[in-house]
């Protein structure tokens, strides 16, 4: 990948402490996650998982909103945690931009949106000429299919779908290489969701913006992703081309997840085994899915499986696919 590498994440780990000062437990919210994003054309890379699997923590580390406990993040060949504070506040926002779940929290409710977008063009994108800033903002609004007069209102006058489009427009003003979108459509009504996801596809194709799409919704993940990582209790269980993973899920957790989607074209068959509690599993020494796994072996309870590359190109963290089973 070399030259075209947009993002390279290596052994990224975040440990949170829970409980009191003396008897607190450590809790690995993100545990040694590695992946790269880049290549000849822009991609949509989706991280899918249940609530509490660490996907938002991972996103926040990539956005430099929280510091990792260990590991490294390289953006366009530069180590993020070696950047000077000036570069972090100037260069980084021009390269990586966020889109959050609740669009109303992205904007000051008392301020009209348009001046804020102009401010973004001047301060973040570094445009000096006022006319050029207006041009840039109008282009961004056109990309998300909003007319400039909508941006001339206050956020509370607009619907959730419109405000989310505005926050996407804001994110593309600096022409970033990467947008990290954390559950961007989960608060949007079903009839308007596809419109927003289509904008992501279009921005990828027309402006060459890469996306990290964080979601719990597998159906929308299938709809827009090029590649998918299935995250379970802090680690990637399976990573690969979206098409391959949905066609033939390898990890028993991915299989359970895909089987549990309330599809609109096929009914559920059989019963599902549900985990007892949540935090306990984080403290298991071996594979964190061992307790719920129908194929559990002795080794699974003792050692965590590494990511194993299969012949189909998919990487899966499961001893079932390892030559070294016992």
């Amino acid at each position: 990948m070399g030259e075209n590498s947009i993002l390279k994440v290596e052994n990224l780990t975040k440990v949170f402490k829970t409980g009191g000062i003396f008897f607190g437990k450590k809790f690995r919210a993100v545990d040694s996650v590695s992946f790269t994003l880049g290549g000849d054309s822009a991609k949509i890379f989706t991280i899918v998982g249940e609530s509490g699997c660490g996907k938002t923590t991972l996103a926040r580390m990539i956005l430099s909103l929280i510091e990792p406990t260990s590991g490294s993040i390289e953006i366009l060949g530069r180590q993020v945690f070696e950047l000077s504070s000036k570069e972090r506040s100037r260069w980084l926002p021009r390269v990586v931009q966020p889109v959050f779940q609740n669009p109303f929290e992205s904007f000051n409710p008392l301020r009209k949106v348009y001046p804020y977008l102009i401010h973004t063009a001047v301060k973040v994108a570094g445009v000096e000429d006022r006319g050029e800033a207006v041009e840039l903002v109008n282009q961004a609004l056109e990309s998300v299919r909003l007319s400039p007069d909508i941006a001339d209102r206050s956020p509370y006058e607009l619907s959730g779908g419109q405000v989310q489009r505005l926050s996407i427009a804001r994110a593309i003003i600096p022409r970033p290489k990467l947008i990290v979108a954390d559950e961007p459509v989960s608060m949007i009504d079903a009839s308007l969701r596809m419109g927003i996801l289509n904008i992501f596809k279009q921005l990828k194709e027309e402006l060459g913006i890469n996306f990290i799409y964080i979601t719990h919704d597998l159906a929308t993940a299938y709809y827009i992703s090029d590649r998918i990582a299935v995250m379970y209790k802090g680690s990637f269980a399976e990573v690969g081309e979206a098409e391959a993973i949905f066609r033939e899920p390898l990890h028993p957790y991915t299989q359970l997840l895909i089987d549990s989607i309330p599809r609109v074209d096929r009914k559920w068959a059989g019963k599902v085994k549900v985990a007892v509690t949540e935090v306990e599993e984080y403290l298991l020494p071996g594979c964190k899915f061992a307790d719920r796994c129908p194929y559990v072996m002795e080794i699974c309870k003792k050692r965590a499986p590494p990511l194993i590359r299969t012949s189909g190109g998919v990487e899966v963290a499961c001893w079932l696919y390892s030559a070294e089973k016992h």
Partner: peptide, 23 residues
């Protein structure tokens, strides 16, 4: 009809359009 047609289907490759306008 609009609502059901805008639901993403796994295995489907059709481009989906949401309903236009707002409730």
């Amino acid at each position: 009809e609009g609502l059901i047609n805008s639901l993403p289907r796994i295995g489907g490759s059709k481009r989906l359009e949401g309903l236009s306008g707002l409730p």
